[in-house]
Amino acid sequence: MQDILKAKHWIIISLLPALLLYTFIVIVPIFWSSYYGFFKWSGMNEPSFIGWANYLEVVNDPIFWRALKNNMIIVVASVFGQVPIALLLALLLRKTTLFQRFVRSAVFLPMVISTVVVGLIWGYIYNPEFGIVNALLEMLGLESWTRAWLSDPAVNMYAVSVPIIWNYIGPYLIIFIAAIQNIPTEIEDAAKMDGANGFRKLFYITLPMMWTTIKVAVVLCISGSLKAFDQVFVMTGGGPAQSTELLATYMYNNTFMTYRYGYGSAVSTMIIIVSLILILISQILMRRKEEKGMSI
């Protein structure tokens, strides 16, 4: 008993440095930032207190809501792009032949490239003059489909989602492959003996056994997409005319381009609130599924 108590002590003491670091680097700045949100501050003059004005302005700014909408497009594209594609690939690539290992590395490769490079590469791919997308469409005789992918507001949000999906399939693929390999072979063998093959095995054995992993992947995916910034910032900078503005680029442009540090801080705080709400919703949705799964 005493040993357990002591062990607990040590756990607490050992966690303390990390916790302290986390508190000062993450938690405290969040509160500082929401505090700065109450000030009118250009970063150079003395800040002056203006109450809730910044927060009200954020809520009343149509661009903020457009940025939120665009962010939701990224979230949806990521959850319904990254996760299913990674799952499909994981199911196809579970063996370790040379070819499969090659495909796996190829899918993981974008993850290793700096996101800025990803943005630049895709900027060239979409380039209206010499981009490969338009060139391919022309080769296929689909000239009418060619367009300035990044500057046409009708399509540019979807265009910028593609590189983000492409960029982050790798880690989910690895997580899913690990999950599949964790399924005990006894269960698979038993299923085989019971005559479950192909899709039956997939839906009744493999997917249910991976469900917790998929849930984690979805949460990671949502929180990751809300932080989306780099690729879009490099490709379009939020433009043209703020049509690809995301919450993060909106915050950046307000803080560092127009020197409204107070307003930028208020936007940051709103981003945190929105993220918490979304994570909460996804948790509730997932929990329901879990209960259902258990009752069956």
Partner: peptide, 21 residues
Amino acid sequence: YQEGANSIDNTQAEQYFAQGK
């Protein structure tokens, strides 16, 4: 202006002009 003027940067436009396009 050429199509997609909002999606290429100034340097690319300079090159485009220098190439006689």
